[in-house]
């Protein structure tokens, strides 16, 4: 077999990858600012407003600070793995963006450019696989730190993510039964024609949302880094930009999870009550991207809003919620969905 290579096609995809990765980075950067601003507003404060107008340059200042901080590698740590950990966390955080359809398509330079890096027919499974790998960055980093608090954080992260992955997967299976496809692009197209999947799967969406919070290690499920019991959890020993990578990976994870949620349950780049096919291709494409990012912004706000409202779970409560509540609910949801499909199709 010879692989026929279309050079321009590869170039197009490479440019798309660069754009999407840098957009993810920028969005994650500004999510840190949003986090601080929203936290401040919820607590009747003003938040950072010194660097630039409304504090818009604050993320740059934070990044610069992290770059210039002294880098400390503990003496008895495992040096290679210690450096590998944050890199893995960042890598797995960014990898998911490959299968998300960021918009329908654009016509530039006489070429029709699809705004999705890879429309593979197992899109959801890919997302699921990458999410399940996300824990490695945390485990490797925590173990190589040679610190008991870090190790505790890593173990918590591992057991938490494995437990919630189960409910996440089963809630997704119910969705798959409704859509009948694994490709994210096709799901969006289906939702453009019919109703959004949230209409068919309200319970499934709720379960997915809760599990996503747990997978992103966000409050109320931020036990891996519970600062008042574990100091900093898995990143206790990290400093400088390596710490920055861990913190950043969390925000990228949030961004990508929001994108996945918007795509799976809220129509992706679909604009409600508007028939995109009547618009010119480029206008529809750009509007679709804007619509998707508005949905993502809503979910990011939800993430932050919940963080500054709900306190952390106790560890046994966390495990109890995952195994005794979410998993049975997910199974029930799957069962009900199957029954409904059987009933209505006949």
């Amino acid at each position: 077999m010879f692989l026929s290579i279309d050079l321009i096609y590869i170039l197009e995809k490479l440019i798309l990858i660069v754009i999407i990765v840098s957009i993810s980075m920028v969005v994650a950067m500004y999510t840190t600012l949003a986090e601080r601003k929203v936290a401040a507003f919820i607590q009747d404060r003003r938040g950072p407003n010194r660097a630039g107008p409304f504090g818009l340059l604050q993320p740059l200042a934070d990044g610069l600070k992290l770059f210039f901080k002294e880098e400390i590698i503990p003496m008895f740590s495992n040096k290679f793995l210690f450096v590998l950990g944050p890199g893995l966390a960042m890598l797995t955080a960014l990898m998911t963006s490959a299968v998300i359809p960021w918009g329908s398509k654009l016509e530039l330079f006489g070429r029709e450019i699809s705004l999705q890096i890879a429309d593979i027919n197992i899109g959801i499974l890919y997302v699921f696989g990458v999410v399940s790998l996300g824990v490695y960055g945390i485990i490797v980093g925590s173990w190589s730190s040679n610190n008991k608090y870090s190790l505790m954080g890593g173990l918590r992260a591992a057991s938490q993510i494995i437990s919630y992955e189960l409910a996440l997967g089963i809630s997704l299976i119910a969705l798959l039964m409704v859509t009948g496809t694994l490709s994210l692009k096709e799901m969006v197209l289906q939702q453009q024609e019919g109703y959004w999947n949230i209409v068919y799967q309200p319970l499934g969406f709720f379960l997915f949302l809760v599990c996503t919070f747990a997978e992103c290690n966000r409050t109320p499920f931020d036990l891996p880094e519970a600062e008042n019991e574990l100091i900093g959890g898995y990143h206790t020993e990290y400093s400088s930009m390596k710490l920055g990578f861990y913190l950043f990976a969390e925000y990228i994870n949030m961004f990508i999870s929001s994108a996945v949620m918007a795509t799976l349950f809220f129509g992706g780049y679909d604009i409600p009550f508007l028939d995109e096919s009547t618009l010119p291709v480029n206008v529809a494409g750009v509007l679709g991207i804007v619509a998707l990012f508005l949905k993502i912004a809503f979910f990011l706000f939800l993430f932050i809003w919940v963080r500054w409202t709900i306190p952390r779970f106790r560890y046994d409560q966390l495990m109890g919620l995952g195994w005794k509540v979410l998993l049975p609910l997910a199974l029930l949801n799957m069962f009900l969905t199957g029954a409904a499909i059987l009933f209505f199709d006949k």
């Binding site: 399940s132 790998l133 824990v135 490695y136 173990l155 591992a158 057991s159 993510i161």
Partner: peptide, 21 residues
């Protein structure tokens, strides 16, 4: 993908977990 999800994503995490403990 299933190989990654099941083996690399779940079973090896448990392995690593046990070995570290």
């Amino acid at each position: 993908v299933v190989n990654i999800i099941v083996y690399a994503g779940a079973i090896m995490v448990l392995f690593l977990f046990v070995v570290m403990l």
